[in-house]
Amino acid sequence: MPKSFIFWNNKGGTGKTSLAFQAICEFANLNSKKRILVIDVCPQANLSELLLGGLEGDGGGNLLKVQGKTPRATVGGYFQMRLPSPYTVGTIATSDFLSVPYEYNSAIPRNITLFAGDPLLELQANSMSTLANNQIPGTNTWVMVISWLRDFVAATGNRFDYIFLDANPSFSIYTQIAMAVAEKVIFPVMADDSSRRAIQNAFSLIYGLKLPSEIYAQHMFATRMESAGLTLPKAHLIVKNRITQYMGAASGYRAVLSSIDDDIEGIIRDNPRYLNFSALKDGVLEIRDFQTTGVVAFARGTPFFALKPGKRSVGGRRITIEAKQITDRRDEISNLAKRLV
């Protein structure tokens, strides 16, 4: 199996997708010989739109073209194929569902292949959950459904070296399917109490830590994965995202971030088997706010390494970005990309 990472947090607004876009593109650029598959398991498909051109490059229109292929070249299109026979794998023509972002957006590294996101996921979720909870003697229906993306990856054979997944903040069935194929989790957080609670909730949802009652344990994702002999993904990095450049040691924001550190140290001490690191410094990373550079990069679907200084058009306005801004942002993203090992 390829090495696999998922960007996820059960809180929205942490900059997860924008962070994933820049980190994945930087990783691909630094590792040009590696074959990379990006799986967008999000109904909003924002990562897909960025890879396919962003606002200025008609990423939305290009995504519609991908969704309009026959078969529908998206995660939703693949799930639609699986729905009639959910408990058998059959033959999967994986190439039918994949796109090459470079063909739509020349700023994207050529070694990235996209399995695009799709709003169909929300429509499919209820059916998938029902199928996963059916009672059929001799068949673990939950495992069969939760393994749909694992089946897809297995069907690609040795085509890819790395897989990166982006999932929305819910922990619905399609997010669990994405989590089941990942080895490592990147958790973006921000400097607020809701991010701290989200990390606590995330570890409860994935690993069953600090449940309010034992009655939930048998139904937890971790319990069902381990009962089926499937390996849980490990927390790989906690990324403190959008940290202001002017945050001082006495800042209230800093106090919240320190509280997050305390929570992580508690997990290191009490539940190290769920982590890919044994010291806080190895598992926590700070990323400053991308500011104007990020606005331009995402509007144009452009990784920082491909962004040039000067005036750029965004939404009919001319915005100036300086070389140092680009360099600073790329240095931080490169640091993150180099830790995706």
Score class of each variant (00 low, 15 high):
residue 252 G to Q: 11
residue 68 G to Q: 10
residue 123 L to Q: 00
residue 97 F to I: 14
residue 70 T to Q: 07
residue 211 L to K: 04
residue 295 V to W: 03
residue 240 K to N: 11
residue 315 G to H: 00
residue 197 R to H: 06
residue 85 S to A: 15
residue 45 A to F: 08
residue 44 Q to K: 09
residue 218 Q to I: 11
residue 175 T to R: 07
residue 240 K to I: 10
residue 55 L to W: 13
residue 162 Y to P: 10
residue 194 S to D: 08
residue 214 E to A: 12
residue 159 R to K: 09
residue 294 G to A: 12
residue 173 I to R: 02
residue 271 N to E: 15
residue 3 K to R: 05
residue 204 S to N: 05
residue 10 N to D: 11
residue 109 P to M: 15
residue 228 A to G: 07
residue 56 E to C: 12
residue 267 I to T: 13
residue 218 Q to E: 12
residue 75 V to N: 03
residue 274 Y to N: 01
residue 333 I to N: 00
residue 30 L to N: 03
residue 101 P to R: 00
residue 283 G to V: 05
residue 103 E to Q: 15
residue 192 D to T: 02
residue 272 P to H: 06
residue 204 S to C: 03
residue 88 T to M: 10
residue 221 F to A: 09
residue 193 D to T: 15
residue 32 S to V: 15
residue 40 D to L: 06
residue 37 L to H: 02
residue 71 P to R: 07
residue 338 K to C: 13
residue 286 E to N: 10
residue 275 L to H: 05
residue 61 G to C: 03
residue 195 S to W: 00
residue 78 Y to C: 04
residue 163 I to Y: 12
residue 221 F to R: 04
residue 28 A to D: 15
residue 58 D to H: 01
residue 131 L to T: 04
residue 229 G to Y: 08
residue 189 V to R: 04
residue 212 P to W: 03
residue 128 M to E: 04
residue 70 T to R: 05
residue 233 P to R: 06
residue 84 P to F: 04
residue 106 S to C: 13
residue 302 T to E: 15
residue 213 S to G: 00
residue 325 Q to G: 14
residue 161 D to E: 03
residue 303 P to A: 14
residue 330 R to I: 15
residue 232 L to M: 05
residue 110 R to S: 15
residue 123 L to R: 03
residue 320 T to P: 03
residue 45 A to T: 11
residue 307 L to G: 12
residue 306 A to L: 12
